[in-house]
Amino acid sequence: MTAQELVDRFGRSNADERFQTLRLLVPGEADSPVLGPFLLATAQDVAEDDLVRVEAIRAIPLLDFADPDLVVTCREALFRLAGEDEDWDVRNAAGCAVFDLPGAEVSIEPMRALLAAEPEEFVRENVSGALRLFLRRR
């Protein structure tokens, strides 16, 4: 299935099918222009099932970031989700995914400030763990 076919069929699938589609997604190099905006829109759609949103977030770092604008757009959107989304699962996934994007070092200090305001201990611990892993990999 091509990236465009996935996008076209997505809305006609039930939540479990959408979840499984994203769970098994392995984007090709040429898929990023189609999948990037689609995954971001899915992640930000508060009407979407939270598990589907989380899988969309987890798929974002799998994209090919040859276009520097795409990585900036993804980083900004993930950071916004990590700080503002009402669903703690989404905040958790987005906060962790930020550190799997190219150039994540620019997110270190802003993420530390965001974590200081995070009300859920689980989210604070997971995102802090993702930050520690990122720092070790550098």
Rank of each mutant, 00 (worst) to 15 (best):
D87K: 13
G129L: 04
C96E: 14
A41D: 05
A56F: 12
A3G: 00
I57A: 06
T73Q: 10
Q4E: 10
V90S: 03
L6Q: 10
L40S: 03
L25R: 12
P119S: 06
T73S: 10
P68Y: 02
D64T: 03
I57R: 03
R132S: 08
N14A: 02
L135Y: 05
D50S: 14
V52Y: 09
E5K: 14
A3K: 07
T42H: 09
I60C: 04
S32H: 01
A130N: 00
P33D: 02
P37I: 01
L25F: 02
A47S: 15
R138Y: 00
V106C: 01
D85W: 06
V34D: 00
W88I: 04
T73L: 10
G83R: 15
E17I: 07
E125C: 03
N92H: 13
Q20M: 13
P61Y: 09
Q20L: 13
E109R: 15
E29R: 01
S107C: 13
V98P: 01
R9M: 07
M111S: 05
L24K: 15
L25Y: 12
I108A: 05
Q20E: 14
E29C: 01
A130F: 01
G28Y: 02
E86Q: 15
N92E: 09
A43E: 08
L135S: 00
C74L: 04
A116F: 07
L22G: 03
G95H: 11
F122L: 11
R58K: 15
M1D: 09
V52T: 09
E109D: 13
L40R: 11
A41K: 15
E5Y: 06
R124K: 12
R112W: 12
E118L: 10
C74M: 05
A113R: 15
D8G: 02
E17W: 14
N92V: 07
M111L: 11
S13C: 12
R18M: 15
A116P: 01
R80L: 13
G36Q: 09
L63R: 03
P27F: 00
A3Q: 06
E55H: 08
F134W: 13
C96Q: 14
R137W: 02
S128G: 14
E84Q: 15
P119W: 04
V52R: 04
G95S: 04
P37A: 01
P33Q: 03
M111C: 08
Q44P: 09
G36W: 11
L131A: 01
E84C: 13
E109M: 12
L25K: 10
A93K: 11
E105T: 05
E125N: 14
I60T: 07
T2C: 02
V98K: 13
L78P: 08
E121H: 12
P68A: 07
V127A: 05
E17G: 11
P61C: 04
M111T: 14
E120N: 08
F38V: 04
N92R: 15
S128A: 08
A66N: 11
V90W: 06
A77M: 10
E17R: 15
V54C: 05
F65N: 02
S107Y: 02
T42Q: 11
R91D: 03
A56H: 02
F79H: 12
R12Q: 08
G95M: 05
R53D: 06
C74F: 08
F79L: 12
M111D: 00
